[in-house]
Design a protein around this nucleic acid. Structure first.
Lengths: 232, 232
DNA sequence: ACCTGAACACCGTTCAAGT
DNA sequence: ACCTGAACACCGTTCAAGT
């Protein structure tokens, strides 16, 4: 045993863009945004830093490819055979969870090469918008607003989660933040103080879904032809 | 003349946190995200890099303070004496434009120390939500959703604008993007292709305001007590 | 107490030299 | 064609030494 020549167990597999991006995602997940280094990545792939540049133009492209991988995987789940609104909720939640699990994706959302990934999301949500009965003239506005809300909320949620690392006690964090809010100047921040309690109790995913419902209700109110709903 | 001792014209003013943050904002605006360097900042302030650390803990805190400055200025405009919904639109647009003018703010939105700035925005929007007649139990959800949409949309808009620098021809960019969209695989991207034309024609600020209206309509539908509107 | 600026430990990226 | 890894030009941050 331990011949070292068996195909499936050889130590050095050929370098490829695919393997590089995969390793990058792992590194980002494990060590965070700052952990992705060409040196660290090269070591993990048992090669030198220069080798990576034969498959990837630069760090920006690498990050963009990693983001695209994560988003593509999140959108790959087959939506259930349910009404369009529910499918939108499903897609939204899938993206939300993906960003939550890979918080470094959030920073990419506000970055350039993102353009590559945008059509993926637009397509996935847009089909449901169409199925919802939104008139064609409103497809772009409606779908874009949904996408903007979903990504914006996911990004801000991930930012909050990133502050204290993955092992932090969530309710403790919320508690600390709520306390900070209640200590704000009563003259300048009456609303924020009044709302600190609700902040402490809230659940991120529930809050997110409420937002999706809100946008959906807005779409219904503004962009769906009025047909007596249910009643006849 | 040119005595060099007059108070208002001396070349070296005392270093202060305020002056440092101010210079950082200028540098970020002028040279972009990558242009903010302790060396460049020190040169601009006619001092050494180490001096800055006497007033600011590190680069993260500096970026956070710069962001807070910009947001505070954007929220400082007195809202007109108009209905709450219009005041929400005004605040939203003011933030949108601020992020558009200072695109580096977008990246900060998905970053940690942001927490400092969040209450500012929450307070400003929340007061209008309250004036709108939203029941107290829904204050937090409602205001947060608005904030998430506003910041998310602003960030994604800034990202798009950042791709080609400030001098790029906007309609040319949209055209190129629309063309790319129409060249996507018809089997995989039917919706995106169908919507490419609307994307080419759209106006960013208008699109953004439509989104705010959509969220407002959702709030009205879900969170405002039903009272016969206008009619009696 | 504040400033200076050289020095340290890193980083992305390049490129001659190898296979 | 692909890989190697030393070298280059940078960066954030520190710290002894000055005022």
């Amino acid at each position: 045993m331990e011949t070292g020549t068996r195909r499936s167990s050889r130590r050095t597999e050929a370098l490829s863009r695919e393997r590089i991006v995969e390793a990058a995602v792992e590194l980002l997940d494990t060590t965070g945004e700052g952990g992705l280094t060409f040196r660290a990545l090269a070591e993990r792939l048992a090669t030198g830093p220069g080798a990576i540049y034969h498959h990837v133009a630069n760090k920006g492209e690498l990050l963009s490819a990693a983001t695209d991988d994560v988003v593509a995987a999140a959108l790959d789940v087959e939506p259930p055979a349910s009404p369009p609104a529910d499918r939108i909720r499903a897609v939204a939640l899938s993206l939300f969870d993906a960003v939550d699990e890979h918080p470094w994706v959030a920073a990419q959302v506000s970055d350039s090469l993102w353009q590559v990934t945008a059509p993926r999301i637009l397509e996935s949500i847009g089909r449901q918008v169409r199925a919802l009965g939104v008139p064609e003239n409103d497809w772009f506005v409606t779908t874009t607003v949904l996408m903007q809300y979903i990504l914006g909320a996911a990004a801000q949620n991930a930012a909050n989660a990133r502050v204290a690392g993955p092992d932090a006690d969530r309710s403790e964090l919320l508690g600390a933040m709520a306390t900070r809010w209640s200590e704000l100047d009563p003259g300048d921040y009456p609303f924020t103080r009044a709302v600190a309690g609700q902040m402490r109790e809230h659940d991120d995913r529930e809050q997110f879904l409420s937002g999706v419902d809100l946008v959906l209700a807005g779409i219904t109110a503004l962009h769906l032809p009025v047909e007596q709903p249910e009643r006849r």
